[in-house]
Simulated scan of single mutants.
Amino acid sequence: MLTLPTRLWWRQSPRNDASTIMGMQTSAAVALGLVIWAVSVVLGFAAGGVLNPLLYVGAMLVLLVAAGVLLGAPRDPVAMWATLFIVFAPPLAITIAIPGLAHRPGLAYGTLTGMSIIVTAFLAVRGRTVAAWLGYGLGLAVALLADAFAGPQPALIGAQAPNLAVLLMATIFAAIVRPRARQIYALRGETERETALRSAEEATLAVRDQQLSRLDDGARPLLDRIAAGGRLDRSELQRCRLVEAQLRDRIRAPGFDSPGVANAAWRARARGVRVLLLDDFDVAVGMPDSVALRAVVDRVVAVLADAEDGDEVTARLLPRGRSRLATVSVARNDGVVRLEFDASGRETSIETQS
């Protein structure tokens, strides 16, 4: 199926193929292509035999555009729309140039067919070997037809002969290098996946160690005090309740598990505020947008800081797929205030109920 590119070629993601190994996706390759084209045009004019400069330059411009398409076209093998253009560029360029060149124009036909074979040879490297041979065959067919119907074309026919060896070498090179390129990038992909998995495991272990450290700091002194026997005083009982509530928060609301929320919830509960944190987002599958979650967390911290004795604060991350990300409600004697947050973390509504 013929599909056109949806993004400009210079914004395409890097290709993982043999062309990358050869540096065809670099600015240096573009610069080298322009230099080769410019030198070919100058040599063609310097050799003599160019009767119509506009036709000759026009033919070379067709090949220049084909080279640009070859360097920038997406996918591996190269996209079909680019393949078709490159296949027909050499015969089109030769057809345009023939009326503007003498039958024995020195290097003009050599530079023209030389640019043609460069384009078709690298088309083979980019995975379209059959199309590259088709492009060469069409160019040769145009040369033979011109020789038969427009008078003898010894320079044009002679310039086509060495190109056969160039395309043959490009075909052999593609057959050897392309499978190796796929293996190289397959190994690279596997290495990147293993690295990402290792990083995720290290991050999980780091979080676990952090959680254990926080648990140890909060619970160990109380556990040691309980193990020592004796009655706990009022402040120690209060601290036990606060530690238990904090541990429950980490289990029920991992999305809210941050030092800011933990400290704000601890202080609010110490003042007599009832705090309930819930996380229904299923963070095991993935976390919400970090910026949006940060905005919600900051608002929760502010609400907890303003809560007074007897208030009830409930913060909840909603299930994945909802139009809203989170809700925060504050219940007090004079009514209930409900805050809602959209997927970007923006506060969308404030509802007050008496």
Rank of each mutant, 00 (worst) to 15 (best):
S40R: 13
D147H: 13
L205A: 06
T195G: 06
T111S: 08
Q238W: 00
L4G: 07
G345F: 02
Q210M: 04
V207P: 00
S329H: 02
P179F: 09
G48A: 10
V243A: 14
L32D: 04
L101E: 14
R11H: 14
V41R: 13
L242H: 11
V291R: 08
T195H: 15
I86Q: 09
L70A: 03
L8R: 11
M24W: 15
L145E: 04
A206W: 10
M60V: 08
E308D: 12
G114A: 07
I118D: 09
P53A: 14
R324G: 07
G335L: 06
A292H: 01
P99C: 03
L277R: 10
A175W: 14
F88M: 02
A284H: 10
L4N: 00
I96K: 00
Q153G: 01
P5F: 11
L140Y: 09
V35L: 15
S40A: 15
R11F: 15
L123V: 06
I184C: 02
R220E: 05
I21C: 11
A206K: 09
A66Q: 05
L187Y: 06
A326T: 01
A307E: 03
W9S: 09
Y56K: 03
S258N: 10
A228R: 00
G49S: 09
L70F: 08
D306F: 11
V330L: 15
E190M: 08
D311M: 09
G151Q: 12
G127N: 06
L339A: 03
D249E: 13
V275T: 01
A302Y: 04
L84F: 10
S13G: 10
P74R: 08
G158M: 12
D249W: 01
G189K: 13
L339W: 02
A219M: 09
R15K: 08
V285Q: 12
G255E: 07
R198N: 01
I118G: 15
W81R: 04
M24V: 01
V283G: 11
E194W: 14
S40G: 06
Q25N: 07
A97W: 05
A206S: 08
R248Y: 03
P152G: 00
R248S: 05
D147V: 00
T26C: 00
L168Y: 05
E244G: 13
G106C: 07
L168Q: 06
Q353N: 01
I96R: 04
A315I: 06
D217R: 15
G139R: 08
E192F: 08
T191I: 04
V50S: 04
L63M: 12
V283K: 01
M169N: 00
C240K: 05
S258I: 14
V291F: 07
T26H: 08
R15N: 00
L232V: 05
M80R: 13
